[in-house]
């Protein structure tokens, strides 16, 4: 037999707790029939659960980010995760209700001609901006309009707002409060010139602009 491992790192300890929770949940429910593991099977509820836990367990690995354009958003509520639409004048409007499918949102923006890098982060975290990308030299501030209704965050990108070499960098964060890990809590955006590096999560900056409603 293999020796029992007592020395767990933080991930392994967290995973163990998640697995225990998962098993406890199953143990309290009627047993389902054993099923064969299929390599092409879709993710189980359990795997989603554990991956979700990994997001909650995230901690800082870098220094605090600089405060960019941060807006906090009231959290309660649920509806479609996001929507991207173009108006007749060529502007693109994005509405985000829940932080699901960052890649999908990124692809949807690209379909509307917007080069973007989208990251969703767990509560209290933002992407560290330093060294991640070169800020575009032209000033885009104030041109991207943002509005908040309930838990829904909407922003509008004017037609031809980005030069061909520029990328809109969007970071959306969930609430650090327990039970509110799906809804949009804060948003940061910037415009990059050239390539954009991988998001390096850092603690949420203390300088924020409180939304009115």
């Amino acid at each position: 037999m293999n020796p029992t491992t007592t020395d767990l790192d933080s991930f392994e300890a967290a995973l163990l707790q998640d697995l225990r929770d998962e098993v406890a949940l199953r143990g309290s429910a009627p047993m389902s029939a054993p099923r064969e593991i299929r390599a092409d099977a879709p993710p189980t509820v359990a795997s989603r659960s554990v991956r979700r836990r990994r997001s909650i367990l995230a901690t800082a690995v870098a220094a605090a980010a600089t405060a960019a354009a941060w807006v906090t958003v009231p959290t309660p509520g649920a509806s479609p995760a996001y929507a991207v639409s173009a108006t007749t004048d060529g502007n693109v409007t994005v509405t985000v209700d829940r932080l699901e499918d960052a890649a999908g949102l990124q692809a949807a923006l690209r379909e509307h001609g917007i080069s973007a890098v989208v990251d969703f982060l767990p509560g209290g975290m933002v992407c560290r901006d330093e060294g991640r990308y070169a800020q575009a030299s032209s000033d885009h501030r104030g041109l991207l309009s943002t509005s908040i209704q309930g838990s829904s965050l909407t922003f509008s990108i004017p037609r031809n707002w980005l030069a061909p070499s520029e990328t809109l960098v969007i970071s959306l964060s969930t609430s650090p409060s327990p039970g509110e890990h799906d809804t949009v809590f804060a948003m940061g955006f910037g415009v990059a010139e050239g390539p954009v590096g991988q998001c390096e999560p850092a603690p949420f900056p203390q300088v924020v602009v409180e939304s009115g409603a």
Partner: peptide, 22 residues
């Protein structure tokens, strides 16, 4: 799979000790 991960929670950082040991 990556899309699925992103849909669920996105890639999340491990804590420093876990990264180091991994």
């Amino acid at each position: 799979a990556q899309r699925a991960l992103t849909r669920v929670a996105g890639r999340r950082p491990l804590q420093v000790d876990a990264i180091t040991r991994a």
